[in-house]
Amino acid sequence: MPGGGILVTTRTATVREPRNRAPAALTYKAGGVHPGRPSQAFVRPDNETRAGLVYASTLCRMQKETCMSSTVAAPSKTAPAGGAKGQPSGDNRYKMLEATMKRHQYAADSLIEVLHTAQELFGFLEVDLLLHIAHSLRVPPSRVYGVATFYHFFSLKPKGDHTVVICMGTACYVKGAAQVVSAIEALGGIKAGETTPDGRVSLMTARCIGACGIAPAVVLDGNITGKQTPAAVVDHVKGWLGNGS
């Protein structure tokens, strides 16, 4: 069962009118921008015009500095301008990310969906990538960062080649999940949430994966396994640490 590979294709494109028709003051207040109509992006009706303009100009400045995207000026363009650091020209992942944002009509409220896609494509969310998304959706960078760090699903650091997710839900807890965690922590010399120095294995804990009937549950590279023991999981992870596969 793929970990979350399915998340990418969430088809939410049909939610068109609500976003566009919603009153700007209500929906887009925080960003001060209107996603549906890029040409008016930085002017908020009830706002101090100067401030709005300054915001616009600073965003443009940032955009020049990072050269991540041309979408602030021309949001309908599908492919980013390219030539930026960490963005090899013709990187397909950027094209796919762009397609997702386009399907959401660059709406500010699709931020979480876009972050899901970005993480799916890139494995983790680099700051440059977040800036690119901020510019494309015309959301303030601080808010994008705030959202990305609020939700535990999003990772701002690269993950290891293999992942062990140990469920720490109540049922797993009473059946000894904590012992499994400490066994793996001892084996890899890392704490939960960390990756081994060689980048082979990431150890994570989950709140509850809903497999309480077969507790304790451990997700090994996306495969849920039930009724685990510390020894069994250690054996499995040893294999990952040992050989290069």
Partner: peptide, 10 residues
């Protein structure tokens, strides 16, 4: 101010 420089992380 309309700048939204500040926000919360974590």
């Amino acid at each position: 101010e309309g700048a939204h420089t500040w926000d919360f992380q974590g």
